[in-house]
Design a protein around this nucleic acid. Structure first.
Lengths: 326, 326
DNA sequence: TATCATTGTGTAAGCGATTTCAATGACAGG
DNA sequence: CCTGTCATTGAAATCGCTTACACAATGATA
């Protein structure tokens, strides 16, 4: 492995000069040229490990996600990766597999370990999370939840759910049911349900509390909850879900119970999943710019790290949404 | 930041002793105890950067994927992450966004940079790729393609496609069309088409070369190709696709042209996508253990890195498949 | 009792960069 | 000619850890 000293010797300068050449310090034109040639000749590339030790910066960003194999998260991740790559950083990916304590674990690991900053795609934010985030030694940006005192990029789930509920209330005749997710996930659990309820109520068609079920983000859980709803009350004619994935499950349940094709106009979701859109012609849902949220969050983070002018540093950013098929 | 020397002083030993304690070298029981307490007291964690510089190992594995937001890849990635986490490594994720030259770029970056090994979720393998892989300084495992001379974990796409074609040939009356992907992707492009053709032929129902189109892995491309096929020859009654995602697009096209619900039994795919399964009741497709391939590949890689006994090191592993809904 | 393996310990030499520091020479102004 | 800037330069000191080496004990063996 050729090191800086080798380059320096070949170019007839000190290694300090090479370092300065590489980092843009004082260097005369002719030495710069000699160094440049020596580097090309030897194929030298500098050891990021030595550099990291000396400078304390690794150009690594830790990204913590709840589950990599979900459409929303993988889109966000794509956005994060885009920006990271463009700006000379790399992504250290930690998949917690929906275990909130592993989130804390990684938060810890990343701090003492080698990242310059953290992007946390958040689901549940407990007090422990809050504490961990606050005491984090490196800058951190949250995606998906709005947490007081932390830098966040999020969507207004309450508002979106309200609009969806309001729009749906008029169009549906018969009973509406709701399949939500744990309220520990404030955005997808609490805000969506509350917003949806409020939207229905505002339109004069309130949600029957007996027709609310809890899923666990998975397609199968949506299926199970929907089967149960349909058997409990055969009059249920529309099932709103907290995620498109669960809506797909509900759709399947309705199709099974009522016959193929019946379900299509009888469910709604959140997320505007591409498969669902193509295969059903479009159920009512909310489109979020997932990729954008990854991009924005990462730009925000890197701006503070790189000390970009005109940036007030980490802040909170609310992104827009769009109702689909209503 | 508390460093090893601080711990050593507090415990009244040399920093070498602390290092040995941490790495399992000779250390007496009482000193071990004192060191342990000193570490707890100070909250010391060792600098992975200094360690990396000294030992040359970073405990980082580079993972190169063509596109993170696709079901198959994100499942593979989940599998990789599982094993990595369990065995004390971390994942450096590089998303090439389907640009094969960025693959080479990352291969390069990772070598000179800080990874101990590489997992490449491969699509197109050009000669340049082959060269890059061969001259790679760190161990590397490929997923998804069988490349001579490289360690691979892959599925037998030819065989699977053959079986699918053979099984389908009998059940379909009318013309069969095929939407493939670029043959530069040997597994998904070449092998699947060839296998499918061979399967049909073996069953006495060969594929009409005029009814072959090329998609680009996306749902929209499947849709476009299918629309074209249907307009070129209205007698086409079944469209086989090289991926479930394109099959979803084809399904949509058929539904548009022939009316909703018509398409369901008129397409096939590869990958056994969960949404497709739920929303259609199941098209003929091939189930691959994507997560498993991530797991197996990573175990293979780490076994050689950690010098596990009884392991012959990097090798080639062919995983099984399963025909669905035929 | 002499000899030797076995453990346990500290000293010090790196790993390969960055960066402080003092030194140098050139050059403008007085 | 002297002095103050200013651009350039290399020597050397880190960054925090691992590990080769030398040296002590200690107990076992001959």
């Amino acid at each position: 492995m050729v090191k800086m000293k080798d380059v320096a010797e070949l170019a007839g300068v000190s290694s300090a000069a090479v370092s300065r050449y590489l980092n843009g310090g004082y260097i005369s034109a002719d030495k710069a040229e000699r160094i440049k040639q020596a580097i090309e000749l030897t194929g030298y590339v500098r050891s990021s490990q030595a550099r990291a030790l000396r400078t304390g910066s690794t150009k690594l960003i830790g990204v913590i996600v709840p589950k990599i194999n979900s459409e929303s998260v993988s889109r966000i991740t794509a956005g994060i990766g885009q920006v990271l790559g463009r700006r000379g950083y790399q992504m250290l990916l930690a998949n917690t597999d929906n275990a909130p304590d592993r989130e804390l674990e990684y938060l810890d690991l990343f701090q003492n370990h080698p990242v310059d900053g953290i992007v946390l795609v958040a689901t549940m934010i407990t007090d422990e999370h809050r504490r961990a985030i606050e005491s984090c030694r490196v800058p951190i940006v949250l995606i998906g939840q709005n947490v007081e005192g932390a830098a966040c990029v999020y969507h207004d789930d309450y508002e979106a759910a309200f609009e969806l509920g309001h729009a749906l209330a008029g169009r549906v005749d018969g009973k509406i049911a709701y399949i939500g997710v744990t309220e520990e996930d404030r955005a997808a659990g609490y805000d969506r349900r509350r917003g949806f309820e409020a939207g229905l109520r505002a339109a004069g068609n309130p949600l029957d509390a007996a027709l609310i079920r809890l899923g666990s983000f998975t397609l199968d859980s949506g299926y199970g909850a929907a089967r149960e709803l349909l058997s409990v009350d055969p009059d249920v004619s529309f099932i709103a879900c907290a995620t498109d994935t669960m809506a797909a499950g509900a759709l399947r349940a309705i199709d099974e119970v009522r016959g193929m094709g019946e379900g299509i106009h009888r469910v709604s979701g959140f997320g505007d999943n591409a498969f669902l859109r193509a295969l059903t012609g479009g159920i009512p849902t909310v489109h979020y710019g997932y990729l954008t949220s990854g991009v924005e969050a990462t730009n925000m983070l890197l701006n503070t790290l790189d000390g970009v002018e005109g940036e007030r540093g980490l802040k909170t950013l609310k992104l827009g949404h769009q109702l689909m098929n209503v």
